[in-house]
Design a protein around this nucleic acid. Structure first.
Lengths: 173, 173
DNA sequence: GCGAGATGATTAACATGTTAATTGTCTCGC
DNA sequence: GCGAGACAATTAACATGTTAATCATCTCGC
């Protein structure tokens, strides 16, 4: 470290060097940061409860998605739980090892895998769901039912707005 | 796999087993999912541009935070860029190796590290910032300036609402 | 001034995000 | 029916998220 030095009267100039260069919006108010902080504020409420049952947020998402249906293909599950295929692959391996889910291969297409929640998985959900719902209710109460609904609508609209904006892909990649 | 079998007439029952058990809100409409999808929709716009310059979203956050000031302590930077200390530690190590930032130790307290952006880092920002701003402008235009401001306000309010809700910490941990 | 506890930063260990490469199966056209 | 793509899923490789542990320094009471 330290092959940096300001020659001559550069002390003050070096001090001002990085100040206010490359003008950009106020960083902390960018949309990605707002969304990130808001989501973190919400998840911070849930994580301790999940952690007590040795579940991560993603594992819980998968169990919830599975609890609503009988069986589902891996690709479709990835879409539902909003996970990338590689992440899902690893998590399913783990959940299966823990006996919380069951897997089999589709009979008509050996490439496709079918996933379903196990009885053990359902029992775990029955234990975790109440406190999870209670936390969600508390959040809703604090923020306001109407406001929450309005926020969800605006978030959905944002998604929809951006749906068309495909990758900029500057013609020539 | 496959030590599961339904005895007797369990075929159909097993089929209905996981269907609609453990009643919970519609999964895809939960607030965490809405926030996650919205943020992903936004970041999807930025990632390709950042990637062309070998920058991750987090590295870019750090550079942006540094560009606004002369120097900053590691802990404060973690707060500003909304990164956990361990992540920041790794990223700073990498950014320093790439010559994009500079580090030194605080003179009054040898535990504290001071980070600042380098000239090379500033030059990189000058290259990346325009397309980044253009993308942000496009998003703003699509979604609407007023709506965007309103959304930011609601996200801020959500954060504020949850600020008090400390960890449930069921007395007895 | 010394030693116990507090504090800043890093490291460790494991889970997930992200893109690319791989593997196994399928679908077609021929 | 076979071989070239298409497709589903996994694996690989690396970066980050997350919690716990470690290391170095500092602070303060005594």
């Amino acid at each position: 470290m330290a092959q940096k030095k300001s020659s001559g009267s550069g002390k003050e100039k070096a001090n001002a060097k990085a100040t206010r260069r490359v003008p950009m919006r106020d960083f902390s108010r960018s949309l990605p940061m707002s969304l990130l902080r808001a989501r973190e504020a919400v998840m911070r409420q849930f994580r301790p409860s999940l952690r007590r049952h040795d579940l991560t947020e993603q594992q819980w998402r998968i169990l919830r998605a599975l609890a609503a249906i009988d069986a589902i293909e891996v690709t479709e599950l990835a879409h539902t739980a909003f996970l990338l295929a590689p992440s899902l692959s690893r998590i399913l391996r783990d959940l299966e090892a823990r006996g919380l889910i069951e897997r089999k291969t589709a009979e008509t297409d050996l490439r496709r895998g079918l996933v379903s929640i196990s009885d053990k998985g359902l029992r775990l959900m029955e234990v975790v769901a109440p406190s999870s719902e209670a936390i969600y209710a508390a959040i809703t109460r604090r923020y306001g039912v109407r406001k929450l609904a309005a926020l969800q609508d605006m978030l959905g609209a944002l998604e929809a707005s951006l749906a068309g904006m495909g990758q900029p892909e500057e013609a020539g990649e």
